[in-house]
Amino acid sequence: MAAACASEPETIADEAEDIPSEFTVPVPGLEISLVEPGAEPRQTLAPSLSVGDSHSTVVTVRSELFQQLGDDPESDFGLPPVTLPLDTEVEAADGGEWSVALTLGRPESPDNVVNSALAAAEGSSAGMTIRADGSVSELRISPNAESSDIARSAVEQALFQAVYGMIAFPQEPVGEGAQWTIDQPIESQMEIVQRTTVTVREMSGTTLLLDLAVEQRPRLPYLDVPGEGRVAVDEFTGEGTGSLRVDLERPLPTEGGFEMYGTQQYSDPDTGYVVRQRTSMATEWDSP
């Protein structure tokens, strides 16, 4: 029951030997709804990537999970912060989509065990396909063969968290003050929808400063746990705020970030057994 309640993306595999040299993970589609077009002048926002362009970006992610089973003391199942230097190159453009290659620099973590394991992940490859609206349709990961399971898992979770923080744009022209919502399912062991409300604070050429408000909610009031049956979702909150600076000529945000906090409670209707959780996530971007 406890293992199925976490709201973070599932790992691809638990053992390093089960992971192929390269694998592709589809990212669920999303819905974009314009709320307010903003002031004149307005323009249609969309990525404007050029094949062959390369950039450097650094993303730092943090994910915390504190869990209490019944009357037991609360336990910490969170992941230590991980900083990933990423070199990007736009490899191809096809039908309004772009294929972007990612090469990892030396990942780092304040956790000594994780940081030591991450050394072997340097030089690992990844990639993503970006749609015409800025959303990511798939994530490709090619970990170094020397990477341990700890390193693979840390890098994978960091890349997933980064992808779910990308911004998609409406089809309609917008100006400063414009606002739209992005509804996206989160791939996890329960059906969660993440709504991001985006507000344009500033527009200057291809550069945008965007304010974000994020909310997560479950689709259903229950959760089916394999081998355990159905448990009730008694409480589920998840919300956060932040801001991002985006350059339409670059595939990844250049600055900013956001934080999310949440509480969850699940119970077994037959036994009354309760699981409580406190969660938080943070993603930060920077360009050297």
Rank of each mutant, 00 (worst) to 15 (best):
E10T: 13
E10I: 10
A13S: 14
E17T: 12
V25C: 07
V27N: 04
P28K: 03
L30P: 00
E31N: 12
L34Y: 10
R42Q: 15
R42V: 06
T44D: 06
L45D: 00
S48K: 14
S54T: 15
V58E: 10
V58P: 01
V58D: 04
Q67P: 02
D71L: 12
P73C: 03
P73T: 12
E74R: 14
D76P: 03
F77K: 10
G78V: 04
P85T: 02
P85D: 02
P85F: 08
D94A: 14
S99H: 11
A117H: 09
A121R: 01
E122I: 01
S125I: 01
A126N: 00
A126C: 04
G127Q: 01
M128D: 01
T129M: 10
I130K: 07
A132M: 05
A132K: 07
D133W: 01
G134S: 07
E138C: 07
A145Q: 13
S148T: 15
D149Y: 09
D149P: 06
S153C: 05
A154Q: 05
V155M: 08
A158T: 04
P170D: 05
Q171G: 15
P173S: 09
V174R: 06
E176C: 05
T181S: 11
E187H: 12
L208D: 01
L209K: 13
L212G: 08
V214W: 08
V225F: 00
V225A: 08
R230E: 12
V231R: 12
A232P: 01
D234L: 02
E239W: 09
T241P: 05
V246M: 02
E249W: 04
R250W: 03
P251C: 03
G256S: 11
T263N: 14
T271V: 08
Y273S: 11
M281G: 11
